[in-house]
Every structure is written in structure tokens, then in C-alpha cells.
Nucleic acid binder design. Structure first.
Length: 106
DNA sequence: GTGATGACGGAAT
DNA sequence: TATTCCGCCATCA
């Protein structure tokens, strides 16, 4: 019957993918989009994560940009929240850039 | 329909 | 390595 269930909701797919990022590793918005089957939609991934409820348990902070940097202005509260979370998982920053050792997934 | 926007990406410089 | 520029694409005013 529902042979095309896969095309359900793109946002749900994105949630699933982000939820599967292993603790202590990070990946990029573009990579999440590609895994979801929507290459070129990195911005959509960002918008999706932005709309998460504040109490969400999704590890949104494990998603950074393709340059290995947090996509928030340095010094902003959002930037600090994300960086603190990542560092508490063992992610190492060299200045404001993530050590490529933990970058990439799949 | 049109232009602006953004938790982006990649190539050029 | 760092900046700058331009392409991309859903969303919204």
C-alpha cells in the first residue's frame, strides 16, 4: 500500500538523522541534507533545527557548518550554549574551529 | 510575481 | 589559512 511512505515529512527525516549522530561527533547541515536525500538543502536543515522547541532532547548541537564552525555569532548566547555542550562531549576547539578529528559522520 | 533572508556550501582570490 | 563572492532553495512579506 504505502510504498511511498518514505516521502513523508522531510522535517521528521531530519530529526531522525540528527538523532542518530553519535555522541562526541559532529556533522554538517549539508551532510544531513544529503543523507536525507535532499542535497542542496542545507539551509532547510538549519531552519528545521531553529524551530525545535526549547525543551527538545534532539542533539541539534552536533550539527555545525561545513567549515567546522558553529553557525552563530561568536560570543552570542547560542554560540556559547552549543560550544559548551560539544566540549562537554569531548569535542575540541582550536580557537573557534572544531578539531577535524571528530568531524564528519557516515 | 518579486525581492529579502538565512543555524549553508564551494570555489576563487 | 582567511576573506570574499556567488550559487542555492524554501519561506515569507
Amino acid at each position: 500500500m504505502y510504498m511511498f511512505m518514505a516521502e513523508s515529512n522531510l522535517r521528521e527525516m531530519i530529526w531522525q538523522i540528527v538523532a542518530a549522530i553519535p555522541k562526541g561527533r559532529v556533522t554538517s547541515y549539508g551532510q544531513v541534507a544529503r543523507i536525507a536525500g535532499y542535497p542542496g538543502h542545507a539551509r532547510y536543515v538549519g531552519a528545521t533545527l531553529k524551530s525545535l522547541p526549547k525543551n527538545s532532547t534532539l542533539p541539534w548541537y552536533r550539527v555545525v557548518n561545513a567549515r567546522g564552525r558553529i553557525s552563530f555569532p561568536q560570543g552570542s548566547e547560542s554560540y556559547k550554549r552549543q560550544r559548551d555542550r560539544l566540549e562537554s562531549e569531548g569535542i575540541v576547539f582550536l580557537n573557534d574551529k572544531i578539531s577535524m578529528r571528530k568531524f564528519g559522520w557516515k
